[in-house]
């Protein structure tokens, strides 16, 4: 990887971390629906996916989860594994959908949000083994629509203005 790319990816990583931390201080609905967030960090992920590719997007996602784990949620505890699974699954899903070319970037962002939440809930079910985690599913899913749209629109604009290639 050349220096330019390394530098740019580091910046993207930092931005996604900062966005993630800011979000962690602004819980929606007083935290009554765990895992509900706007997903601003995903703007960076989508940007990376479209600018560089899958590998780079996965890298930034995973490192971001680790760093935020170090700083906010704690490493190797339940929230950490939920975030990790959500981040990983949503990047892969978005990459595959991008390849198939059915949806626009907004639609992909919505799917990214959807799969992120689905992955988190299923991971929490397997780790905690309680049925009650599924109660949050409808609310998380319905919120992935507006949050996905917003993130998608922002990403689209950013990609228009910043062409790293």
């Amino acid at each position: 990887m050349d220096t330019k790319k390394l530098t740019r990816m580091s910046m993207l990583l930092s931005i996604s971390i900062v966005l993630g931390i800011i979000e962690s201080f602004l819980p929606l609905f007083d935290g009554s629906i765990p895992g509900l967030k706007i997903g601003l960090a995903n703007i960076v992920i989508i940007f990376t996916l479209y600018t560089y590719g899958l590998k780079e997007a996965i890298l930034i996602s995973i490192i971001r989860v680790f760093v935020i784990g170090l700083l906010r949620t704690g490493l190797f505890n339940y929230p950490f594994f939920f975030s990790l699974s959500g981040a990983f699954v949503s990047v892969v899903v978005m990459y595959l959908l991008k390849k198939i070319k059915i949806f626009s970037i907004v639609g992909i962002s919505v799917c990214g949000a959807l799969s992120h939440n689905l992955a988190q809930i299923f991971t929490s079910y397997f780790l905690l083994k309680v049925n009650s985690v599924f109660i949050y599913l409808p609310y998380l899913l319905i919120f992935s629509i507006p949050t996905g749209i917003i993130v998608g629109i922002v990403s689209k604009s950013l990609l228009k203005y910043y062409d790293f290639n």
């Binding site: 890298l59 995973i62 490192i63 680790f66 190797f76 505890n77 594994f81 990790l84 780790l127």
Partner: peptide
């Protein structure tokens, strides 16, 4: 770095 990260995940993954 990538390898180290994944090794860490696997090693400490099982709580």
């Amino acid at each position: 770095l990538i390898i180290i990260f994944f090794v860490l995940i696997i090693l400490c993954g099982c709580s």
